[in-house]
């Protein structure tokens, strides 16, 4: 997604001189197209994410649209208070680009795994949060949100090849995008795990279980209305995210179910607690945390069985 994102940013920057790009010394083999085209509008601030966020605040107040780029943990956690007291408090158009969803920097380990970025930013009013499902949504969401008046957080996956079937890059702020129309189960998903969810839906279909997939790609504006309407039709809903099950998509769906008084039972798939430090490939981590296509399908089947015969 990150390369597609930068390509789109280059096109936007060619049209709008307010766009500048700052990095905290990351983005090798990704950001070069921007750097080559706009060397005077690119600043590597060094390994200093707090400062990068403060600089972006000063730039935005003067009329620029600064994009600040780093690995998701460093882009959202190290500088969290600078985001809060800067672009959020001042309502400025700073764009925070956090790369690496959840455990995508697999073997790099816990310090590079963003498990709570969506949660900590979702509680802040006034910041739009975007987590595309694939590279095409990374492009469409950037095209939709680059010129918003307030701050935006983009959580970008590293995969620039996988395309979620039938999503076709559809994106609208505050809306969910549907794939399929099964009535047995609702799968609510966010980010690059959506590709696994789509595969899981096919595995389920082969076993006679038809699911609807609701792709949530942004918080603030909240997709609550779309989700509430959907949730009302499903007794069982699974959420999938490469994030702690607290604070992100699963929490959002819980809030909607509770506030609307809906009867859906919710199963939250994601990172359920403090990781144990065991390292491995991305595939290993998807499996370990129950987010592979097979693991998601198994969870769905188990929960459907439970729903049919709760003991």
């Amino acid at each position: 997604m990150r390369k597609a994102f930068i390509q789109t940013l280059v096109s936007l920057a060619a049209e709008d001189p307010r766009i500048v790009l700052l990095t905290g010394d990351l983005g090798y083999t990704v950001i070069e197209p921007f750097v080559e085209k706009f060397p005077d509008r690119f600043f590597n601030v060094g390994v200093a994410e707090q400062n990068m966020t403060g600089i972006a605040t000063g730039l935005a107040e003067a009329g620029f649209i600064p994009f600040i780029y780093s690995i998701a943990t460093f882009a959202s956690l190290r500088n969290y208070e600078f985001i809060r007291n800067g672009p959020i408090l001042h309502r400025l158009p700073v764009r925070i680009v956090g790369v690496g969803e959840g455990f995508e920097y697999a073997r790099a380990g816990f310090t590079h795994h963003a498990f709570e970025d969506l949660g900590v930013l979702r509680v802040q009013p006034g910041i739009t949060i975007i987590s595309p499902a694939d590279f095409r949504q990374a492009q469409s969401s950037l095209n939709a949100a680059w010129n918003l008046p307030g701050p935006v957080y983009f959580r970008l996956g590293k995969d620039d090849r996988t395309e979620v079937p039938d999503l076709n890059g559809r994106f609208a702020l505050g809306r969910t995008q549907l794939i399929g129309s099964g009535s047995d189960l609702l799968l609510v998903t966010m980010g690059s795990v959506t590709a696994n969810v789509a595969k899981a839906a096919r595995l389920l279909s082969a076993k006679g279980v038809e699911a609807t997939i609701a792709v949530v790609s942004n918080f603030n504006p909240s997709p609550a209305e779309d989700l509430a309407a959907l949730l009302a039709s499903f007794p069982l809903v699974l959420t999938a995210e490469i994030h702690y099950t607290v604070g992100g998509l699963g929490s959002l769906v819980s809030e909607i179910i509770a506030e609307k008084g809906l009867a859906s039972r919710l199963v939250r798939c994601g990172i359920k607690g403090m990781p144990d430090g065991l390292s491995g490939s991305l595939a290993y981590l998807y499996e370990k945390h129950g987010l592979s296509d097979k693991a998601l399908a198994e969870t769905a089947l188990k929960e459907l069985e439970y729903a049919a015969d709760p003991k």
Partner: peptide, 29 residues
């Protein structure tokens, strides 16, 4: 900052010089 005459909200120490650096860079650009 919502008060007329105040350019930036402050209070958390260590924030202002970064903002100032960005504001100065903006003026230069």
């Amino acid at each position: 900052h919502t008060l007329k005459g105040v350019d930036f909200s402050t209070g958390s120490l260590g924030h202002g010089l970064s903002i100032g650096a960005g504001a100065a860079l903006a003026a230069k650009l």
